[in-house]
Protein backbone atom coordinates (compact mmCIF):
# COMPACT_ATOMS: atom_id res chain seq x y z
CA UNK A 1 0.00 0.00 0.00
CA UNK A 2 1.14 3.54 -0.68
CA UNK A 3 2.47 5.43 2.33
CA UNK A 4 0.02 8.34 2.22
CA UNK A 5 -3.04 7.91 0.02
CA UNK A 6 -4.06 11.56 0.37
CA UNK A 7 -1.10 12.87 -1.62
CA UNK A 8 -0.28 12.04 -5.22
CA UNK A 9 3.21 11.35 -6.58
CA UNK A 10 3.80 15.11 -6.96
CA UNK A 11 2.79 15.69 -3.36
CA UNK A 12 -0.51 17.36 -4.27
CA UNK A 13 -3.59 16.85 -2.14
CA UNK A 14 -5.95 14.41 -3.86
CA UNK A 15 -7.97 13.35 -0.81
CA UNK A 16 -8.34 14.87 2.63
CA UNK A 17 -8.35 11.95 5.07
CA UNK A 18 -6.41 13.14 8.11
CA UNK A 19 -4.26 16.03 9.28
CA UNK A 20 -1.57 13.54 10.31
CA UNK A 21 1.33 13.78 7.90
CA UNK A 22 -0.26 16.67 6.02
CA UNK A 23 2.60 19.02 5.06
CA UNK A 24 2.51 22.45 6.72
CA UNK A 25 2.52 24.15 3.29
CA UNK A 26 -0.68 22.37 2.34
CA UNK A 27 -2.35 23.33 5.60
CA UNK A 28 -1.31 26.97 5.11
CA UNK A 29 -2.52 26.87 1.53
CA UNK A 30 -5.93 25.63 2.70
CA UNK A 31 -6.12 28.37 5.35
CA UNK A 32 -5.05 31.08 2.88
CA UNK A 33 -7.61 29.88 0.35
CA UNK A 34 -10.26 29.82 3.08
CA UNK A 35 -9.48 33.44 3.89
CA UNK A 36 -10.52 34.40 0.35
CA UNK A 37 -13.77 32.49 0.73
CA UNK A 38 -14.54 34.21 4.03
CA UNK A 39 -14.90 37.43 2.05
CA UNK A 40 -17.07 35.68 -0.53
CA UNK A 41 -19.34 34.55 2.27
CA UNK A 42 -19.70 38.12 3.48
CA UNK A 43 -20.97 39.29 0.09
CA UNK A 44 -24.59 39.73 -0.89
CA UNK A 45 -24.27 36.99 -3.51
CA UNK A 46 -22.39 34.22 -1.75
CA UNK A 47 -21.59 32.12 -4.75
CA UNK A 48 -18.57 31.47 -6.95
CA UNK A 49 -18.61 29.24 -10.04
CA UNK A 50 -15.48 27.20 -9.18
CA UNK A 51 -17.19 23.81 -9.01
CA UNK A 52 -19.95 24.38 -11.55
CA UNK A 53 -20.90 21.09 -13.16
CA UNK A 54 -19.21 19.00 -10.47
CA UNK A 55 -21.18 16.44 -8.47
CA UNK A 56 -20.42 16.15 -4.81
CA UNK A 57 -21.94 13.26 -2.88
CA UNK A 58 -22.33 13.66 0.86
CA UNK A 59 -22.27 10.03 1.90
CA UNK A 60 -23.07 9.77 5.58
CA UNK A 61 -22.96 6.29 7.06
CA UNK A 62 -23.38 7.90 10.46
CA UNK A 63 -26.02 10.51 11.00
CA UNK A 64 -25.04 14.12 11.36
CA UNK A 65 -27.14 17.11 10.48
CA UNK A 66 -24.66 19.84 11.39
CA UNK A 67 -21.58 18.64 9.59
CA UNK A 68 -23.52 17.50 6.55
CA UNK A 69 -25.22 20.88 6.35
CA UNK A 70 -21.95 22.79 6.47
CA UNK A 71 -20.52 20.64 3.68
CA UNK A 72 -23.68 21.14 1.68
CA UNK A 73 -23.56 24.92 2.07
CA UNK A 74 -19.86 24.96 1.18
CA UNK A 75 -20.42 22.91 -1.98
CA UNK A 76 -23.41 24.99 -3.06
CA UNK A 77 -21.50 28.25 -2.62
CA UNK A 78 -18.93 26.77 -5.02
CA UNK A 79 -21.83 26.09 -7.45
CA UNK A 80 -21.47 22.31 -7.28
CA UNK A 81 -24.39 19.91 -7.51
CA UNK A 82 -24.84 18.32 -4.10
CA UNK A 83 -26.45 14.98 -3.42
CA UNK A 84 -27.04 13.95 0.17
CA UNK A 85 -27.22 10.31 1.11
CA UNK A 86 -27.93 8.97 4.54
CA UNK A 87 -26.67 5.48 4.03
CA UNK A 88 -27.10 4.60 7.66
CA UNK A 89 -30.76 4.10 6.84
CA UNK A 90 -30.67 2.60 3.35
CA UNK A 91 -28.10 0.50 1.44
CA UNK A 92 -26.04 -1.11 4.16
CA UNK A 93 -29.25 -2.08 5.85
CA UNK A 94 -29.96 -4.06 2.67
CA UNK A 95 -26.61 -5.78 2.96
CA UNK A 96 -24.68 -3.77 0.40
CA UNK A 97 -21.03 -3.34 1.29
CA UNK A 98 -19.41 0.04 1.75
CA UNK A 99 -17.39 -0.29 -1.45
CA UNK A 100 -20.39 -1.46 -3.48
CA UNK A 101 -22.23 1.65 -2.39
CA UNK A 102 -19.31 3.85 -3.37
CA UNK A 103 -18.78 2.12 -6.72
CA UNK A 104 -22.44 2.57 -7.55
CA UNK A 105 -22.28 6.26 -6.82
CA UNK A 106 -19.05 6.52 -8.76
CA UNK A 107 -20.89 5.05 -11.75
CA UNK A 108 -23.21 8.06 -11.47
CA UNK A 109 -20.15 10.21 -12.24
CA UNK A 110 -19.45 11.55 -8.79
CA UNK A 111 -16.49 13.91 -8.66
CA UNK A 112 -16.13 13.99 -4.91
CA UNK A 113 -17.27 12.01 -1.91
CA UNK A 114 -17.69 13.57 1.50
CA UNK A 115 -17.75 10.60 3.81
CA UNK A 116 -18.70 10.11 7.41
CA UNK A 117 -18.48 6.63 8.92
CA UNK A 118 -18.48 5.15 12.40
CA UNK A 119 -15.42 3.00 11.63
CA UNK A 120 -11.92 4.43 11.72
CA UNK A 121 -10.24 4.14 8.34
CA UNK A 122 -13.40 3.88 6.22
CA UNK A 123 -12.49 6.98 4.12
CA UNK A 124 -8.98 5.53 3.60
CA UNK A 125 -10.53 2.35 2.25
CA UNK A 126 -12.75 4.33 -0.11
CA UNK A 127 -9.86 6.53 -1.24
CA UNK A 128 -7.88 3.44 -2.19
CA UNK A 129 -10.72 2.12 -4.33
CA UNK A 130 -12.09 5.11 -6.23
CA UNK A 131 -11.09 6.01 -9.79
CA UNK A 132 -8.26 8.48 -10.31
CA UNK A 133 -9.70 11.98 -10.38
CA UNK A 134 -12.39 11.19 -7.80
CA UNK A 135 -11.70 12.85 -4.46
CA UNK A 136 -12.59 11.77 -0.94
CA UNK A 137 -13.07 14.15 1.98
CA UNK A 138 -13.22 12.61 5.42
CA UNK A 139 -16.09 14.17 7.37
CA UNK A 140 -15.31 12.09 10.45
CA UNK A 141 -14.38 8.42 10.84
CA UNK A 142 -14.82 6.70 14.18
CA UNK A 143 -12.39 8.10 16.71
CA UNK A 144 -9.75 8.57 14.05
CA UNK A 145 -9.99 11.89 12.28
CA UNK A 146 -12.14 14.88 11.41
CA UNK A 147 -9.69 16.89 9.35
CA UNK A 148 -11.95 19.72 8.18
CA UNK A 149 -12.89 20.40 11.80
CA UNK A 150 -9.21 20.37 12.74
CA UNK A 151 -8.44 22.79 9.91
CA UNK A 152 -11.26 25.19 10.72
CA UNK A 153 -9.95 25.25 14.27
CA UNK A 154 -6.52 26.18 12.90
CA UNK A 155 -8.15 28.91 10.85
CA UNK A 156 -9.87 30.23 13.97
CA UNK A 157 -6.67 30.16 16.01
CA UNK A 158 -4.74 31.93 13.27
CA UNK A 159 -7.46 34.51 12.93
CA UNK A 160 -7.24 35.47 16.59
CA UNK A 161 -3.64 34.69 17.46
CA UNK A 162 -1.79 35.22 14.14
CA UNK A 163 1.39 33.34 15.02
CA UNK A 164 1.37 29.65 15.92
CA UNK A 165 4.99 29.53 17.05
CA UNK A 166 4.51 31.01 20.53
CA UNK A 167 1.21 29.47 21.55
CA UNK A 168 0.10 27.24 24.39
CA UNK A 169 -3.01 25.27 23.50
CA UNK A 170 -4.95 23.02 25.89
CA UNK A 171 -7.42 20.39 24.70
CA UNK A 172 -9.68 19.45 27.59
CA UNK A 173 -11.94 16.46 28.16
CA UNK A 174 -12.69 13.25 26.33
CA UNK A 175 -9.65 12.92 24.09
CA UNK A 176 -9.99 9.12 24.00
CA UNK A 177 -13.11 9.09 21.85
CA UNK A 178 -12.43 12.32 19.98
CA UNK A 179 -11.54 12.36 16.30
CA UNK A 180 -11.58 16.13 16.56
CA UNK A 181 -8.84 16.15 19.20
CA UNK A 182 -6.61 13.89 17.08
CA UNK A 183 -7.02 16.11 14.04
CA UNK A 184 -6.29 19.22 16.11
CA UNK A 185 -3.19 17.70 17.71
CA UNK A 186 -1.59 16.75 14.38
CA UNK A 187 -2.40 20.12 12.81
CA UNK A 188 -1.13 22.08 15.82
CA UNK A 189 2.14 20.20 16.05
CA UNK A 190 2.66 20.47 12.28
CA UNK A 191 2.09 24.23 12.37
CA UNK A 192 4.75 24.54 15.06
CA UNK A 193 2.76 25.15 18.23
CA UNK A 194 5.41 24.55 20.92
CA UNK A 195 3.11 23.57 23.78
CA UNK A 196 0.09 21.39 23.03
CA UNK A 197 -1.56 19.97 26.11
CA UNK A 198 -4.25 17.39 26.67
CA UNK A 199 -6.13 17.63 29.95
CA UNK A 200 -8.40 14.98 31.37
CA UNK A 201 -8.78 11.99 33.68
CA UNK A 202 -6.81 8.83 32.90
CA UNK A 203 -10.00 7.13 31.71
CA UNK A 204 -10.50 9.64 28.90
CA UNK A 205 -6.95 9.97 27.58
CA UNK A 206 -5.76 7.30 25.13
CA UNK A 207 -2.65 5.24 25.89
CA UNK A 208 0.69 6.74 24.84
CA UNK A 209 -1.01 9.95 23.70
CA UNK A 210 2.18 11.84 24.62
CA UNK A 211 3.81 10.17 21.61
CA UNK A 212 1.62 12.40 19.45
CA UNK A 213 3.69 15.30 20.70
CA UNK A 214 1.48 16.59 23.50
CA UNK A 215 1.96 17.13 27.22
CA UNK A 216 -0.44 15.26 29.46
CA UNK A 217 -2.15 16.95 32.39
CA UNK A 218 -4.58 15.37 34.81
CA UNK A 219 -4.72 18.48 37.01
CA UNK A 220 -6.93 20.95 35.21
CA UNK A 221 -5.45 24.01 36.98
CA UNK A 222 -1.95 23.15 35.87
CA UNK A 223 -3.19 22.27 32.40
CA UNK A 224 -4.98 25.57 31.83
CA UNK A 225 -2.36 27.85 33.34
CA UNK A 226 -1.17 30.53 30.90
CA UNK A 227 -2.92 29.00 27.88
CA UNK A 228 -3.58 31.10 24.78
CA UNK A 229 -6.22 28.72 23.48
CA UNK A 230 -8.56 26.45 25.44
CA UNK A 231 -10.43 23.82 23.44
CA UNK A 232 -13.13 21.89 25.24
CA UNK A 233 -14.38 18.64 23.75
CA UNK A 234 -17.90 17.37 23.68
CA UNK A 235 -18.65 14.64 26.21
CA UNK A 236 -21.10 12.16 24.68
CA UNK A 237 -24.15 11.42 26.78
CA UNK A 238 -23.44 7.70 26.97
CA UNK A 239 -20.02 8.36 28.53
CA UNK A 240 -21.25 10.62 31.31
CA UNK A 241 -21.73 7.72 33.69
CA UNK A 242 -20.38 4.20 33.58
CA UNK A 243 -16.91 2.77 33.85
CA UNK A 244 -15.17 5.90 32.56
CA UNK A 245 -16.80 8.61 34.65
CA UNK A 246 -19.04 8.59 37.72
CA UNK A 247 -21.32 11.45 36.61
CA UNK A 248 -21.70 14.49 34.42
CA UNK A 249 -21.79 16.61 37.56
CA UNK A 250 -18.47 15.32 38.83
CA UNK A 251 -16.93 15.79 35.39
CA UNK A 252 -18.16 19.37 35.29
CA UNK A 253 -16.67 20.00 38.71
CA UNK A 254 -13.27 18.54 37.83
CA UNK A 255 -12.80 19.31 34.12
CA UNK A 256 -15.74 21.44 33.01
CA UNK A 257 -14.70 24.90 31.81
CA UNK A 258 -16.02 27.40 34.33
CA UNK A 259 -15.17 31.12 34.57
CA UNK A 260 -12.96 30.31 37.58
CA UNK A 261 -10.91 27.73 35.69
CA UNK A 262 -10.70 29.92 32.60
CA UNK A 263 -9.22 32.67 34.79
CA UNK A 264 -6.06 30.53 35.00
CA UNK A 265 -5.47 30.94 31.26
CA UNK A 266 -4.02 34.12 29.75
CA UNK A 267 -6.30 37.17 29.97
CA UNK A 268 -6.73 37.20 26.19
CA UNK A 269 -7.27 33.46 25.85
CA UNK A 270 -9.84 32.20 23.37
CA UNK A 271 -12.25 29.35 24.08
CA UNK A 272 -13.22 26.89 21.36
CA UNK A 273 -15.60 23.94 21.11
CA UNK A 274 -16.37 21.74 18.07
CA UNK A 275 -20.07 21.65 18.99
CA UNK A 276 -22.69 20.73 19.78
CA UNK A 277 -22.06 21.88 23.33
CA UNK A 278 -23.39 20.37 26.54
CA UNK A 279 -23.96 23.38 28.72
CA UNK A 280 -23.09 22.70 32.33
CA UNK A 281 -21.11 19.60 31.48
CA UNK A 282 -17.87 20.28 29.61
CA UNK A 283 -18.50 24.01 29.45
CA UNK A 284 -20.55 26.47 31.49
CA UNK A 285 -22.93 28.84 29.76
CA UNK A 286 -21.04 31.80 31.16
CA UNK A 287 -17.96 30.68 29.26
CA UNK A 288 -19.68 29.45 26.10
CA UNK A 289 -21.48 32.76 25.69
CA UNK A 290 -18.75 34.91 27.24
CA UNK A 291 -16.23 37.30 25.77
CA UNK A 292 -13.49 34.68 25.36
CA UNK A 293 -15.70 32.35 23.34
CA UNK A 294 -15.10 32.06 19.59
CA UNK A 295 -17.47 29.11 19.15
CA UNK A 296 -19.75 30.91 16.69
CA UNK A 297 -16.90 32.26 14.53
CA UNK A 298 -15.66 28.64 14.35
CA UNK A 299 -18.92 27.67 12.68
CA UNK A 300 -18.70 30.57 10.23
CA UNK A 301 -15.09 29.85 9.31
CA UNK A 302 -15.99 26.19 8.92
CA UNK A 303 -17.91 26.93 5.73
CA UNK A 304 -14.97 28.78 4.19
CA UNK A 305 -12.48 26.08 5.16
CA UNK A 306 -14.65 23.36 3.64
CA UNK A 307 -15.03 25.45 0.49
CA UNK A 308 -11.24 25.77 0.35
CA UNK A 309 -10.70 22.03 0.76
CA UNK A 310 -13.19 21.18 -1.97
CA UNK A 311 -11.86 23.84 -4.32
CA UNK A 312 -8.25 22.73 -3.87
CA UNK A 313 -9.13 19.06 -4.33
CA UNK A 314 -11.03 19.82 -7.50
CA UNK A 315 -7.91 21.55 -8.75
CA UNK A 316 -9.52 24.94 -9.17
CA UNK A 317 -7.75 26.93 -6.57
Amino acid sequence: MSPDPQLDAQGRLVHLLTTEGLPAEIIRHILDTAAQFVSVNEREVKKVPLLRGKSIFNVFFENSTRTRTTFEIAAKRLSADVINLNIGSSSTAKGETLLDTVWNLQAMDADMFVVRHSEAGAPHLIARHVKPGVHVVNAGDGRHAHPTQGLLDMYTIRHYKKDFSRLTVAIVGDVLHSRVARSQIHALTTLGVPDVRVVGPKTLLPKDVERLGVRVFHDVSAGLRDCDVVITLRLQNERMSGPLLPSAGEFNKTYGLTPEKLALAKPDAIVMHPGPINRGVEIDSGVADGSHSVIMPQVTFGIAVRMAVMAILAGNA
Binding site: A120, R143, P206, K207, L212
Partner: peptide, 15 residues
Amino acid sequence: HEGEVATRLGLPAVP
Protein backbone atom coordinates in the same frame (compact mmCIF):
# COMPACT_ATOMS: atom_id res chain seq x y z
CA HIS B 1 -3.24 -3.31 20.62
CA GLU B 2 -3.67 -0.52 23.15
CA GLY B 3 -0.75 1.77 22.43
CA GLU B 4 0.47 4.56 20.21
CA VAL B 5 -0.76 3.08 16.94
CA ALA B 6 -4.32 2.44 18.11
CA THR B 7 -4.30 5.91 19.66
CA ARG B 8 -3.27 7.49 16.33
CA LEU B 9 -5.73 5.44 14.33
CA GLY B 10 -8.54 5.85 16.82
CA LEU B 11 -9.17 2.11 16.88
CA PRO B 12 -10.86 0.51 19.89
CA ALA B 13 -8.01 -1.12 21.77
CA VAL B 14 -7.27 -4.31 23.68
CA PRO B 15 -5.05 -3.55 26.67
